[in-house]
């Protein structure tokens, strides 16, 4: 191989790795914006319904995933990939994407909501913020991802920073089902980590744009048919009532941002590996602070600044040297 050709190949592969990092950063930023906007939408009727504490977030999450899945399908129609949905679903890696979708969507999200309800936000957030570390460990074991000491330090710093940013001091109110809540938070954390590892394994063969399209539509379908019935009729009342107000259309617009975020996250996992993509995705806590300050009445405190600095430092360490990302896994 000539030196000139070698250089071109090397540059092309480094460019691929850099794009993967770019997708990871975009995933974190857009998820932060998505979270702030969803928080604002949840403050509007009919989500202010007080008949069930966790019906509103579960309904909003279900609607959000449905709209995201629809936007992603439109995107895949425009890019000429829509035939790949049916072809992919007939394969075993395609079915693995379905499993990953259930792990991350209904299991991850629903248990996280229930954990906040049963154990309080302080403990639930502290536990679920650790999902990138669990994902990185599982990625190293099952996918043989190469994760150096610097990247580990980066991931742990980003987790610590997101914990500091998202931490809410215990309110002092009693939680009679506290340990149930802790258990559900652990299940949510494992669910999100498993989603990353299983979907990345599937995306070795499945196009990442199709994988995330399937993921969002599966998450919506399972939430609609299997999670909302547990909440009761109030969930469907809220869901259908939202279409008689403008809030469902706000969520449709937010779903576009969510779709971009999820697409970026799946591309990043495929291009840079689970560990780095999750380490970059967890920066959403930092972006949520920035967008919250810009779009709502969020006050910047010293705790937020310390958390933001930890996330920035963690991100720099996680990104590392793109030259080392040309081959993601050990042989």
């Amino acid at each position: 191989m000539e030196v000139n050709t070698q250089t071109i190949i090397q540059n092309r592969e480094i460019s691929f790795a850099k794009k993967g990092i770019g997708w990871g950063l975009l995933a974190g930023a857009s998820w932060g914006l998505d979270a702030v906007l969803m928080g604002m939408a949840l403050a509007l009727a009919p989500f202010t319904n007080t008949l069930s504490l966790f019906a509103a977030p579960l309904v909003a999450s279900c609607l959000h995933d449905g709209f995201s899945g629809t936007w992603l399908f439109i995107k895949n129609v425009i890019s000429g990939k829509w035939r790949e949905y049916a072809r992919t679903l007939k394969t075993r890696p395609g079915k693995l994407i379905l499993v990953a979708a259930i792990m991350g969507g209904p299991i991850g999200m629903s248990n996280s909501m229930l954990a906040i309800h049963f154990a309080g936000a302080a403990y639930a957030v502290a536990i679920t913020a650790a999902y990138p570390a669990i994902g990185a460990i599982l990625g190293a074991i099952f996918l043989k991802e190469k994760i150096g000491l610097r990247v580990w330090c980066g991931i742990l710093l980003a987790i610590l920073g997101s914990f500091v940013v998202a931490y809410v001091p215990p309110s002092g109110e009693s939680h009679p089902h506290f340990y149930l809540g802790i258990g559900l938070a652990v299940i949510a954390t494992i669910g999100w980590a498993l989603e990353g590892v299983i979907s990345t394994y599937g995306m070795d063969l499945v196009d990442s744009d199709i994988a995330i399209g399937i993921r969002e539509l599966t998450s919506f379908s399972v939430s609609f048919c299997a999670i909302l019935p547990f909440v009761g009729a109030v969930a469907y009342q809220i869901l259908f009532a939202s279409f008689s107000t403008s809030v469902a259309w706000y969520i449709a617009a937010i779903g576009l941002i969510g779709g971009i975020s999820q697409l970026s996250w799946y591309r990043a996992m495929n291009m840079t590996g689970v560990a780095r993509a999750m380490g970059l995705n967890v920066t959403y806590a930092l972006w949520a602070v920035l967008f919250g300050w810009l779009l709502s009445d969020l006050q910047i405190t010293s705790t937020l600044i310390i958390g933001a600095m930890l996330i920035c430092l963690g991100t720099i360490l996680t990104i590392g040297n793109p030259k080392q990302l040309v081959t993601i896994r050990s042989k």
């Binding site: 191989m1 000539e2 000139n4 050709t5 070698q6 071109i8 190949i9 092309r12 592969e13 691929f16 790795a17 070795d204 063969l205 495929n270 291009m271 990302l325 040309v326 081959t327 993601i328 896994r329 042989k331």
Partner: peptide, 17 residues
Amino acid sequence: LISLKSVGLIDSISVTL
């Protein structure tokens, strides 16, 4: 092709310009 190569499913044999 780059994606398949980066996760180790395929290897490059030769390259010409």
